[in-house]
Design a protein around this nucleic acid. Structure first.
Lengths: 271, 271
DNA sequence: GTTAGAAGTTCGTGAAATACAAACAGCTAT
DNA sequence: ATAGCTGTTTGTATTTCACGAACTTCTAAC
């Protein structure tokens, strides 16, 4: 009855969306043939074949025998994107120093589309679990149960946090995970007041992390850093206090350097 | 006169190609606004707007104020693709060990679309140029002037090498770069015979590298590794010989492990 | 050695999605 | 206050895509 096909704004290109459906399907299936993809996506074989051929021409897909796979083109573009990120460029060496100094895992993260993305992570000498944490495949993850995530959330506008919670909810990873919206807002208030965030076994049992935000001159949060380790070590009062200082200090150093670079951009030097 | 619009096979989807034109433009321009992109791509503003909106909905583009940028989604997918690569999974720790043992830069590379892609690189203690080589942004690069590239080319079918040279030519980076097809084939023959490749200031003046291929059980080359350092150190006979041994040995270790994993796949274990 | 079946690929054609241009809205700077 | 930039919206013509059947190639079983 009602006018359905009014093609609301912004108009979205179905052909492009379907191309990315193919990309996501190739990721889910770890590569696939034409027929398998056609079944998975409820499209005809010939259509899938055309999408794959196009993606291949664009070098984002490779064909090995009769299976199609995503190509390393994604990595090349992805590393370009990461390199464009000033927080990564400035933060990477500082995070490495932080990991060396503390001996624990150190992380550098930012927010995108309401989820946390790790820009960089490095393992210190005494870090637990060998290289497991560093080598495992990274995905965008919820912000509410990590130290980096909470440091970011604490400095986003309240309405944005509400939007994120509406969008993704507050799923629990352990019994400690904050799953209540009001409780989360209280926690974020605490984070703002004391200047650092804590993840006390809220993501992984036995693992604690300390995080701090990096904001730019205008108060916008660019991302955050954290250090993580086993609870028994992290809870020792003196050790704990030292870590907090190291993390907050490193975040400040990054902040200062980022803001120096960014103000350069506002008064560009002419060549 | 002649039938132009016969839409040859495979049919390629123009809408998808244009979406990736937008992606490439965003990369070239380091982010841009609608009008700027429309000019750059010779499309109308409304069309570009629709592409950007779609890419944004798919989370591959983010909008900051009025500038659109590629998102870290590319990095997430890219790291997935890299992780899928068995050479990366097996080779990474071995390459780290190689860098530590030799003190030089160590690289892990593979081929895609006729170009070399670095899967991983790590700096040893005595490596020159601080972290410049490790931190600089990586692109797909020609195969004919790097140690990793020559190790790969040496083990590709001759017709494929010819196709690659037809496609990309043999551009020179230094006076030492091989720019003649026959000379290249002679060099590749030498590489095959002695089991390792050399890059003797063919890419960067003052830099030498030693490479070795990693092939699977069926003789197909999966990629290659290399170690690089300043000529004055690399040319010392004993040091040189030791490096060759280390590189070839590491390549063999990776090869064995890769082939063990791959043969597991052929006789899958049922759960 | 032949054949059934399942894979990838090609192609003609109707249906649907996109490209265009012009109008609109929002902002900045003069 | 307004001219001239942005980004955004919308109606419409037309290009392009989706479908399904036919074709090809390969494998495996009889």
């Amino acid at each position: 009855m009602a006018d359905e096909h009014t093609n609301g704004s912004p108009r979205t290109l179905k052909t492009v969306s379907r191309a990315f459906d193919v990309v996501r399907a190739l990721e889910e299936l770890d590569g696939a043939g034409v027929t398998e993809l056609a079944d998975h996506l409820d499209l005809s074989k010939s259509v899938v074949y055309n999408y794959l051929s196009t993606l291949r021409e664009e070098k984002f897909v490779v064909k090995e025998g009769d299976t199609y796979q995503l190509s390393l083109q994604f990595l090349l573009v992805g590393e370009y994107v990461r390199y464009q990120n000033i927080l990564y460029r400035i933060g990477k060496p500082e995070i490495e120093e932080l990991a060396e100094k503390t001996g624990e895992y150190a992380h550098l993260a930012t927010e995108q589309h309401g989820l946390g993305v790790n820009l960089y992570k490095v393992s210190g000498e005494t870090a637990v679990g060998s290289d497991y944490q560093v080598n495992k495949l990274q995905r965008a993850d919820y912000l509410h149960f990590s130290a980096t995530g909470k440091a970011i959330l604490a400095h986003l506008p309240r309405e944005r946090v509400n939007w994120i919670v509406d969008q993704y909810g507050l799923p629990a990873k352990t019994e400690q995970t904050i799953t209540d919206r009001e409780e989360l807002f209280d926690e974020l208030e605490t984070v703002r007041e004391r200047g650092y965030s804590l993840n006390d076994e809220e993501e992984i049992k036995g693992l604690q992390a300390i995080g701090a935000p990096v904001t730019n001159r205008h108060g916008r949060v660019l991302g955050s850093i954290s250090v993580s380790g086993p609870v028994r070590r992290m809870k020792q009062p003196e050790y704990h206090q030292n870590l907090i200082e190291s993390v907050v200090n490193t975040a400040n150093v990054i902040e200062v350097n980022v803001n120096m670079e960014e103000s350069d951009d506002e008064f560009p030097t002419f060549s």
